[in-house]
Write a protein that binds this DNA or RNA. Structure first.
Lengths: 200, 200
DNA sequence: CGTTGCCCATACGCAGGCGTATTGATAGAG
DNA sequence: CTCTATCAATACGCCTGCGTATGGGCAACG
């Protein structure tokens, strides 16, 4: 837990910021979906009343927008920072997979957000984030020497696989390979999804 | 459209059945998620009032249960009927993939249901359906001569991939390969996810 | 024609979330 | 010490969905 842990019980005498509300909104989103972002329940969780909320935000709409912006920014810096440092394209894909399979919580958040197919604002953000990831993957495959026709297919393939992994992991947790089995599974995916040549 | 098309405008003088309500519930679920299954909005969509609903069901809970039961039954008969007729295990997997990538609507429904992670009833059903699909895939891989250690890994891999395909297709529709590109993509997945030997 | 059962409409009270208005508390500036 | 700006609590009205109670229409059957 960070020093200024929010959305937890306890006084936490520090005044709430708008970003704290947005972060709390993302937390409940990961569990209850977009509809779970409700002002009064959130206020209860933060040990305040909605009197506080309506000082920081004009309405619920603004909170949703702020939460989505925060999420997109997190996801985007997540991609550029650290990941792009790696020179080897093969290792870049490996790192992507590692990251995708490690952060279970952020995976849940993506799935919860993407499930809000009826909300236009959410759809736009999800689309941008997904498209960025796909473009990044495609770039990696091209760096591996793949043609402009093949790369997008492999990128979609790989991306679908690790999005699907998060889904399967969430939906049937006890069936998903764990421990040493997961290491096997991981290696299987890597050698299957990164074709020929270019080993590190 | 079937002769007794429900959940559409128009009088449709035929009396509503409980299953019609359940089917309509599944329809709105595929778009708005579990929370969209609300009695009064559904009644409006069916051109009746909730007076009708509360004759067929004791409460909203019962409707959700009925809808889930209907869904599970659909998904289950979907697997056993027609699919298990095919003798060749390779072709069985191919058919699975074809079916997964063809029924866009049913894919959306699965994703919407699976997103309701906070609901216990939904989780149980989703878990059973997913587990059944995984077990079926594993059986296919074993029929291809795969070992008891490898088969579950490949089954999870393949299942994650086509669940992920539905997700990517939904989240970034314009990026997803279409037309001839999709045929390429499909062949790529098949030859990658069904290893060596056992070609038809 | 009357009665009975099936299916639905209407009207009501209740609960919970949204947004507003008003007041209160606290810290820092002067 | 006073004043002011910041942040939060309280109280209110509104809307919407849930569940109940009651009554109405209609077909089948006697």
């Amino acid at each position: 837990m960070s020093p200024n842990d929010l959305n937890e019980a306890g006084p936490s005498k520090q005044s709430l910021t708008a970003e704290a509300w947005a972060a709390a909104a993302l937390d409940v989103m990961a569990v209850g979906g977009l509809d779970a972002v409700a002002v009064e329940p959130l206020a209860r969780k933060l040990n305040v009343t909605k009197g506080s909320f309506y000082w920081h935000f004009p309405n619920r709409e603004a909170l949703v927008k702020a939460a989505l912006a925060l999420w997109e920014q997190r996801e985007t810096v997540d991609v550029v920072s650290g990941l792009d440092q790696e020179p080897d394209p093969y290792q870049r894909i490996v790192n992507l997979f590692k990251r995708a399979n490690s952060s279970y919580k952020s995976g849940r958040l993506y799935l919860a957000l993407a499930a809000a197919t009826d909300d236009v604002r959410v759809n736009e953000v999800v689309q941008r984030v997904s498209a960025r990831r796909l473009a990044y993957l495609e770039k990696c495959y091209r760096a591996l020497g793949m043609s402009a026709e093949e790369a997008p297919l492999w990128a979609t393939f790989a991306y679908a696989t690790f999005i699907g992994n998060q889904q399967v992991h969430r939906d049937t947790p006890h069936t998903f390979p764990a421990g040493p089995k997961f290491r096997e599974y991981f290696k299987l995916m890597l050698r299957t999804l990164i074709p020929k040549g270019a080993t590190p």
